[in-house]
Amino acid sequence: QEELVKAFKALLKEEKFSSQGEIVAALQEQGFDNINQSKVSRMLTKFGAVRTRNAKMEMVYCLPAELGV
């Protein structure tokens, strides 16, 4: 569980995922086979993730800066 949270936060820091499906796929690539869209959705809510525009003006998920991840 701890490893999943770390990987999840690291992915969001990249600010390149525009959908929950993309986050699920990226986590599965890292070996988290039991991850699915509903789990990702709950984690996004739990950590207060928001959708914002990145440098390329794409809408992407990211974590609020005050979490200091």
Score class of each variant (00 low, 15 high):
Tyr61Pro: 02
Ala49Gln: 02
Ala26Trp: 08
Val5Leu: 12
Asp33Pro: 14
Glu22Gln: 15
Met57Thr: 05
Leu4Asp: 01
Glu66Asp: 13
Lys9Pro: 01
Lys39Ala: 14
Leu63Phe: 06
Val5Thr: 10
Asn34Lys: 10
Leu27Glu: 00
Cys62Pro: 01
Arg53Glu: 08
Ser19Pro: 00
Glu66Pro: 08
Ser19Met: 06
Phe47Lys: 01
Val24Arg: 04
Leu67Glu: 14
Ser38Trp: 12
Ser41Trp: 07
Glu66Lys: 07
Lys9Ser: 05
Cys62Leu: 08
Gly48Met: 04
Ala25Cys: 08
Gly48Asp: 04
Gly21Leu: 14
Glu3Arg: 08
Leu27Ala: 00
Phe47Arg: 01
Ala25Glu: 10
Gln28Asp: 03
Glu22Gly: 08
Lys56Tyr: 10
Glu22Trp: 03
Glu58Arg: 06
Leu63Gly: 02
Gly21Asp: 13
Thr52Arg: 15
Arg51Trp: 08
Arg42Asp: 15
Glu3His: 10
Gly48Trp: 03
Gln1Val: 11
Ile35Arg: 00
Asp33Lys: 13
Lys9Glu: 08
Lys13Val: 09
Ala65Gly: 12
Gln28Trp: 09
Leu12Asp: 00
Gly68Trp: 04
Met43Asn: 00
Ala65Glu: 15
Ser38Glu: 14
Pro64Thr: 05
Leu27His: 00
Ala26Gly: 03
Met57Arg: 08
Phe32Asp: 01
Tyr61Arg: 02
Ala65Leu: 11
Glu58Asp: 07
Phe32Ser: 01
Met59Leu: 15
Lys13Thr: 08
Asp33Val: 14
Ala55Ser: 13
Lys56Gln: 12
Gln1Ser: 13
Lys16Phe: 05
Leu67Ser: 14
Gly48Gln: 07
Gly48Phe: 04
Val69His: 11
Val40Gly: 00
Glu15Met: 11
Glu14Ala: 12
Gly68Arg: 06
Leu63His: 02
Val60Tyr: 05
Val40Leu: 05
Phe17Gln: 02
Ala25Met: 11
Ala55Thr: 08
Asn34Met: 10
Pro64Val: 06
Met43Asp: 00
Ala26Val: 07
Lys6Cys: 15
Glu66Thr: 07
Phe8Ser: 01
Ala10Ile: 08
Arg42Thr: 11
Thr52Leu: 10
Asn36Pro: 04
Val60Ile: 07
Lys6Trp: 09
Ser41Leu: 08
Gln30Pro: 00
Ser18Gln: 13
Tyr61Gln: 02
Arg51Asn: 04
Lys39Val: 15
Asn54Trp: 02
Ala65Ile: 11
Ala10Gln: 13
Leu4His: 01
Val5Asp: 14
Val69Thr: 13
Lys6Pro: 04
Leu44Trp: 01
Glu14Asp: 07
Glu58Gln: 12
Leu27Pro: 00
Leu4Tyr: 03
Met43Trp: 07
Ile23Asp: 00
Ala25Trp: 09
Gln28Thr: 09
Phe17Gly: 03
Ala49Leu: 02
Leu27Gly: 00
Leu4Phe: 06
Lys13Gly: 08
Asn54Val: 03
Gly68Asn: 12
Ala26Tyr: 11
Gln28Ala: 09
Val24Ala: 08
Glu29Thr: 09
Leu12Gly: 00
Lys46Met: 14
Thr52Gly: 11
Arg42Phe: 13
Gly68Met: 07
Gln20Ile: 15
Met43Pro: 00
Ala10Thr: 08
Ala10His: 08
Phe17Ile: 04
Gln1Pro: 10
Val69Glu: 15
Ser19Ala: 07
Leu4Trp: 05
Pro64Phe: 04
Leu67Trp: 05
Val24Pro: 00
Lys46Ser: 12
Leu12Met: 06
Val50Met: 08
Gly48His: 08
Ala65Asp: 15
Met59Phe: 12
Gly21Tyr: 11
Val5Arg: 09
Ser38Tyr: 13
Leu4Ile: 07
Phe8Glu: 00
Phe47Gly: 02
Ile35Trp: 02
Gly31Arg: 03
Gln28Pro: 00
Arg42Asn: 13
Gly31His: 03
Ala49Trp: 03
Leu44Glu: 01
Leu63Thr: 03
Gly21Lys: 14
Leu11Ile: 08
Gln37Asp: 11
Lys16Thr: 08
Glu15Leu: 09
Leu4Ala: 03
Met59Lys: 05
Ser18Tyr: 06
Gln1Gly: 10
Lys13Phe: 08
Lys46Ile: 13
Phe8Ile: 06
Leu44Val: 04
Ser41Met: 10
Gly21Pro: 08
Ala65Val: 11
Phe8Gly: 00
Leu27Trp: 00
Ser38Leu: 11
Asn54Arg: 03
Val5Asn: 12
Asn54Asp: 04
Asp33Tyr: 12
Val40Ser: 00
Glu29Ile: 10
Glu2Pro: 10
Cys62Phe: 07
Ala26Pro: 00
Lys39Thr: 14
Phe47Pro: 01
Lys13Met: 14
Val24Asn: 02
Ala55Asp: 11
Gln37Arg: 15
Ala55Val: 08
Gln28Glu: 08
Lys6Met: 12
Phe17Tyr: 15
Met59Arg: 04
Leu67Thr: 14
Ser18Cys: 05
Phe17Asp: 01
Val24Ser: 05
Ser18Phe: 07
Leu44Gly: 00
